[in-house]
Design a protein around this nucleic acid. Structure first.
Lengths: 253, 253
DNA sequence: TACCTTGTTCTAGAGTGCAGAACGAACCGG
DNA sequence: CCGGTTCGTTCTGCACTCTAGAACAAGGTA
């Protein structure tokens, strides 16, 4: 008995597992492969796949199944619910163009950092996360910027419910050390990440100030340390991030 | 008995209806509102909502529910399955910058046109559709470009299974007329839309040629007729669309 | 305080989703 | 051309899950 909370719809969980299996796979999958991955019988996998199919979440080609772009539609609708996205996306694009580096817009969802816009440059480098990923707040520059600008009690509940999981050697796993760094971020208005999330990747970010406290988001720039080292200050990328967040603030008013 | 095909998982359909209700709503919804919209009892709505919640598809705040950015994550993963997206996104961005107008990348999914990338300009105008929407192929310039470049039998099955639904007065609802227009598009390599999808919006598009016939996609430019009229030829926006698709072709090789 | 209206929990039984087996089609090597 | 394998699909009956509806708790309002 998979008793997560007594009032859980098992069939739904099976369907979601099927869908996630398809999304996670590189290539289209057949019924048998899905059944094995999810751990159900072939017949059941078939029932769930055809249900997802008739509802438009999955497409079928030559007996193999793939997730459909309906997910993109719902995802983009969900992103549009965050007012900050419309208010900031062009400025984030401009930031990427001006710096020649990847610029990102992060929001806080349930105590985790989620990039809802990633503006890449045509140089071919892409960050190792994608739009919609959940990334622990303490791991990235935008995440720490968000943490630093949250009301203190909210930040504390987040730190209590989410472990400071380690991602690289540089990850900040000590809470008191993190708290003092957050204070420095509050003082300076700027947040840095030095390979704390991925080896070889560094970033800067600043929180987006808001009149009301309902919004919490941050804008950042990140890229390979080999290319970016020193440039945050030398080329004033830091200043560009700050003025971007300020112009978004004006845009919101 | 909702007998769509005898082997359908009803509980899954209920959960999907719940999720879609949340996505469609502007604001977070409570249990009662969801129950009414979906047409189930309060208790059942609650079960499905908490199932979606524990699985990360929905977030809960003060007793109201919203769709979560997990949908964006899965949507963006699904988009990344289309190799054309990586190959074309920067060129589409450049096209938008060069023309000062909205540029789009469409693919064909199950006989419908789906924009998987929309590059807007900072002028504030946004197209009335969003990434992931399904749009009948005959309604848009990119859609017709796709139809024209499909192998003839595939195009025919699409025209047989999808009605030429009317969207505006200008919509092409006559099949033979459409077929002859498609031939012209094949000859010219370029496709136009003159308010056939929405009043006041016009567009140009060209299909992306491919060595293998597996890919079918198109790149276009669209915007308000009041601003765009005449400029397709005068400013050679048409030529820019064409050279963009050519450079993507090279990029794919 | 009394009375709404929320969200949540509970229960019992109708009916549905489940495993597993059987079917048919496609493919492959001999 | 044919036995063997593997696939997707269909089938069946029973166990158990999901459902409706009622009851409960918690807030808000007058």
């Amino acid at each position: 008995m998979t008793d997560t909370s007594r009032y859980t719809v098992d069939a739904t969980e099976t369907s979601l597992a099927v869908l996630e299996t398809l999304v996670a796979s590189e290539d289209p999958l057949g019924v048998t492969a899905v059944a094995e991955t999810v751990g159900v019988s072939k017949g059941v996998a078939h029932n769930h796949l055809s249900t997802l199919c008739t509802n438009g979440y999955v497409t079928k080609n030559d007996g193999t199944y793939s997730p459909s772009l309906q997910l993109l539609s719902m995802g983009s609708r969900t992103r549009d619910r965050h007012a900050i996205y419309e208010a900031a996306k062009h400025q984030v694009n401009n930031l990427a163009t001006a710096t020649g580096e990847t610029a990102t817009l992060f929001v806080n969802e349930n105590g985790e950092g989620v990039p809802i816009h990633i503006a890449e440059t045509p140089d071919g480098w892409s960050p190792p996360f994608h739009e919609g990923s959940r990334i622990p707040l303490h791991l990235t520059a935008p995440g720490k910027a968000i943490l630093s600008s949250l009301p203190e009690e909210n930040a504390n509940t987040i730190l209590e419910t989410h472990d400071l999981v380690s991602s690289t050697d540089a990850t900040m796993t000590d809470r008191s050390e993190l708290v003092s760094q957050l204070q420095r971020i509050r003082d300076d208005g700027i947040s840095f990440c030095r390979e704390e999330h991925y080896e070889g990747i560094i970033g800067v970010a600043a929180p987006i100030s808001t009149a009301t406290d309902t919004l919490t988001a941050a804008i950042g720039v990140c890229g390979p340390a080999t290319r970016l080292n020193g440039r945050f200050l030398e080329e004033d990328i830091t200043g560009q991030v700050l003025s971007t967040t300020k112009s978004v603030y004006v845009n919101l008013a």
